[in-house]
């Protein structure tokens, strides 16, 4: 259960210039739900994802996930919360280009200091699931866009998080790859994960497994 209560987010670019990204937004997302945040770029939908992931703090209001006020976590514990609960698929994937696929997917596990056996097991599982195992030792910067996205999804899932966040997942994909991404989403939904997608791609608005579509316009939920 994700709850946003009266969230306002203001970015202060400098003293004179401020941007109101979200204005008194309230939203609640039940467990296992697939929610699509619809809106033009700059409408504030990315800010919502970032708040749910505790990557930024609201100017006012509260974000509560499973009863826990995550908008007040300290830097360290925000990271722990992300590590254990959130799988974030960024728009630009945010992979480390000079590392191999394997090393990129393993990144979230590095600080956990797991036994090699456990780590390799988890790695094999997600690489299999997202069809990237055959590229395990390839360097990420040499991969195609679709492959990079699969690496990003695999990395987001390696800790088996309850919540998956995806920011404009199809912005850099052609139609065929977009459709295969939707297949992946279906699979994740079947694992009972809560999925929040921020997008302006109409492809997502009429899918049968999407539970609700919320439109955001200039920082306000319609």
């Amino acid at each position: 259960m994700i709850e946003l209560k009266h969230i306002t987010k203001i970015y202060e670019l400098n003293r004179a210039d401020r941007v109101v990204a979200l204005n008194d937004v309230s939203l609640s997302i039940k467990e296992g739900v697939v929610l699509v945040l619809k809106g033009a770029s700059g409408s504030g939908k990315s800010s919502i994802l970032s708040l749910i992931a505790a990557l930024s703090k609201p100017t006012s209001g509260e974000v509560i996930v499973d009863g826990k006020k995550i908008s007040k976590l300290s830097d360290n514990f925000a990271s722990v919360y992300r590590r254990d609960n959130i799988g974030f698929v960024f728009q630009k994937y945010n992979l480390i280009p000079n590392l191999s696929v394997r090393d990129n997917i393993l990144l979230p596990l590095v600080p956990l200091n797991l036994d090699a056996k456990d780590a390799e097991e988890k790695l094999a599982l997600v690489m299999e699931m997202f069809h990237i195992a055959h590229k395990a030792n390839a360097i990420v910067k040499n991969l195609s866009g679709g492959e990079q996205q699969r690496v990003a999804i695999a990395r987001a899932n390696i800790n088996n998080p309850k919540i998956i966040l995806a920011d404009e997942p199809t912005a850099n994909l052609d139609e065929k790859l977009s459709l295969s991404f939707i297949e992946i989403l279906k699979e994740l939904k079947s694992l009972n994960k809560t999925i929040v997608i921020a997008t302006h791609d109409p492809l997502f608005f009429n899918l049968d497994f999407v539970d609700s579509v919320v439109e955001i316009h200039n920082g306000i939920v319609r």
Partner: peptide, 20 residues
Amino acid sequence: KREVGILKAIGWRVDDVLKE
């Protein structure tokens, strides 16, 4: 900077980055 940003976004704590 971006690299550290990525690491923190996927769950590395400040302490983990410092340790690295």
